[in-house]
Simulated scan of single mutants.
Amino acid sequence: MPHPVRWGLAACVALSLTACTATSGEQPPTAATTPGTTPSPTVASPSPAPAVDHALADLEDELDARIGVAALDTGTDETVEHRADERWGYASTVKVFVVAELLRTTTAEQRAEQVTWSQEDVDAAGYAPVTGDHVDGGLTLDELAEAAVRDSDNAATNILFEHIGGPEGLRAAFERLGDRTTEPARTEPDLNTVEPGSTADTTTPAAFTADLDAVLHGGRLDPQDVDRLVEWMTGNATGDALVRAGAPDGWTVADKSGGAGALRHDVAVVTPPGREPIVLTVLTEREDADAGSADALVEQVAATVLDRFR
């Protein structure tokens, strides 16, 4: 099936874990915990490519990490998976799906309307680099959606949550995509803290890859809204050191990153020249990682997985 959109921006190559020092533009909460390795009960996935699976297992051992991957080549249906049915707190990666549901449920005219909020809303959200500068005049819903994806603005995300029916509205959106694994429960910043043993605000790599593929390639959105969402993902300010850094030269990357405590994630659509896109979810957990090494882990995972599709 021809892909409905084309993406710009060449991806850069920086494959060394030790050489990468870029840090994320996101500012994750400090009190996050992670949910352990409770398996998803609903998805039965095919066996991963053995060489990649072994390489990722070696990386886990080397770095004392847990790595979850689900990659789908939309042109060939080839998959690469590692711990694809285990759960992680999804952190800010969920913002791309909040925005997708806003695009599905509103018209361009509705999204052009001005929205306002209070300083208290900004303070409660914890991280608001765009909305914090526009308390007086407000922004349009389109501008808030762009801020949620490109800048990972928490206050913008909470305003969008209000327009899609809150976490319950997002849960219903996932169910319409066929996803009964992902469990939205709270808004920002609380969704970043997952209590041990809880499945609230968690997903699996397999679920998020299927969801992103359905949103972008399944006819769920009008083509112009797909273009708009991918444009925001392509220009996001928080992903340069993640999948984009691990992609081969000349491959374009549109992504949404996330991070909280020990977690560092990226969900992406990666397009090789002249080929159909690869949908990729990378979820990682490393207890002792600083921001740079956490980013480098995602980069190395992406490089390992995408090399399988060369």
Rank of each mutant, 00 (worst) to 15 (best):
F174T: 00
S152K: 00
L139D: 02
E162K: 13
V301S: 09
T34G: 11
G132Q: 05
D266Q: 11
G259F: 00
R171T: 14
L160G: 02
V115M: 12
A65I: 03
E299F: 01
P46M: 02
E195Q: 14
D249E: 15
P248F: 03
T105E: 11
A100S: 15
P39C: 07
A32C: 14
A31H: 14
L15H: 14
G219A: 07
E60G: 12
G178H: 13
E299T: 15
G165M: 06
V269L: 11
D53V: 10
P205C: 08
A254R: 11
L306K: 06
A19W: 07
T193H: 15
D142P: 03
P196H: 10
D121M: 10
H82F: 03
D153K: 10
G197P: 04
F161A: 03
E287W: 11
T202V: 08
R176N: 11
F97Q: 04
R220E: 09
G250T: 04
A156H: 08
D121R: 13
P48K: 04
P223A: 10
G197D: 07
A44Q: 14
S45M: 12
L17Y: 15
P39M: 06
H265V: 04
Q27C: 11
Y90C: 02
W7V: 14
R220N: 04
P272W: 08
T281Y: 00
I67G: 00
D201F: 09
P248W: 07
H265D: 05
L221S: 11
A31T: 14
D211W: 01
A55I: 00
G137M: 05
G292V: 01
P4H: 08
S45W: 12
D136F: 06
R228I: 01
D201K: 12
E62H: 15
W117I: 03
E120N: 15
T304R: 03
V301A: 09
D85W: 01
A245L: 14
A84F: 00
D133W: 02
P35R: 08
E146L: 10
I164P: 02
T93C: 12
Q27E: 13
D288N: 15
W232T: 03
A214S: 15
A207I: 00
V69G: 04
T182M: 03
L56Y: 07
A214Q: 11
S47P: 12
A32V: 05
L216E: 01
S198T: 09
L170F: 09
D255C: 07
A100T: 05
N154S: 11
A214P: 03
W88Q: 04
T131Y: 10
T33A: 12
P248H: 01
G197A: 08
A112K: 11
D61C: 08
D307R: 13
A125K: 01
L141K: 04
P50E: 03
V230Q: 05
D151Q: 15
A291I: 01
V52E: 01
I159P: 00
S45V: 14
C12G: 13
L297Q: 07
P196V: 01
D211T: 04
R310G: 15
E78S: 13
R220G: 08
A49D: 14
V80R: 10
P39F: 06
R186K: 14
V253A: 07
P196Q: 07
A108C: 06
T281M: 04
R150L: 12
V96T: 15
D307F: 09
V43D: 02
A214G: 14
P196Y: 06
V99T: 12
T42V: 13
V301E: 05
G178D: 10
A32E: 07
V301L: 07
A294M: 09
P189I: 00
R87G: 09
